Computed example of a mutant assay.
Amino acid sequence: MTQPTPSKRPLWTVAVLLLLGAAALWGASRLVWSAEQHDRGVRGVVLETHTGAQVQGALVPLAVLAVAGVAGAVATGGWPRRVLGVLLALAGLWACWLAVDGLSFGGFPAGTPGWQIFTGRGLALLGGILVLLGGLIATRKAGSMPRLGARYAAPSVKKTARDPDTELWEALSEGEDPTDR
């Protein structure tokens, strides 16, 4: 019984989900996440805004982890890919938690950019969900996704060439002089 040929679709799906999730997390780190009005004496009441990176410093590292997860998903297979998928799913859950942690649905003071706060946190939530889905798919479909080819694996048994010309070219590729035979 032969094994079915691995489909590239789940691997592409994981890569796209992780890259989109990383972009969303990075973008959310640049947007407004909180705003407060402070009385500054002579200057009056001043609105201070804080970005996602200032409020939740883990957004950018989670985005970097998601990008690294793409390389890990492509380079690994089997159990290492499943472990990577679980790690990415946990990172996605963490990003979702960071997005909703401290979110207030109450009224904002006048002049507070409420829609900007919800946009920044919503983008982080979307990024977390995308990374979570990428990790779950990588875990579930780890066996059916293609691995790096045998070209990148350490040679265990030397192949025998079928054609004499091919044998000469392989000898040249390995650094041998085929004319010394």
Rank of each mutant, 00 (worst) to 15 (best):
H50A: 15
L172V: 08
P113C: 13
T51N: 13
P164V: 14
D101C: 12
S156K: 12
R140E: 04
P146D: 09
G102N: 12
G57I: 07
F105A: 15
A75F: 00
I117S: 09
G92I: 06
K159Q: 14
T160S: 14
L123F: 03
A89I: 05
T139V: 04
L65F: 08
T119Q: 11
A99H: 09
P80H: 03
V100G: 14
K159V: 14
G111R: 13
D165G: 14
G128R: 02
A73N: 02
R121G: 10
L93A: 14
Q116W: 11
G128H: 00
L125Q: 07
A63E: 06
D165E: 14
A110W: 08
G106W: 08
G77R: 02
A68Q: 01
T160N: 13
K141L: 03
P146E: 10
A150P: 04
A89L: 10
G52K: 06
S104P: 11
A95W: 02
A75W: 00
G69M: 04
L172Q: 06
F105G: 15
G52Q: 11
G78N: 02
A138V: 04
E170M: 06
A171G: 07
A110K: 12
I117C: 08
E170D: 11
F108N: 15
T49I: 13
G92M: 05
A71H: 00
A68W: 01
I129C: 10
L130Q: 06
A124T: 07
L168M: 10
D165I: 08
L148V: 09
L123N: 08
G107N: 13
R82I: 03
R82W: 01
T139W: 03
G77P: 00
L103G: 14
T160V: 14
L148Q: 08
L65W: 04
A75G: 03
A53H: 10
F108A: 15
V70W: 00
V67S: 04
V67T: 04
A75Q: 01
V86Y: 02
G92L: 08
G149E: 11
G143D: 08
M145V: 06
P80W: 01
P109N: 13
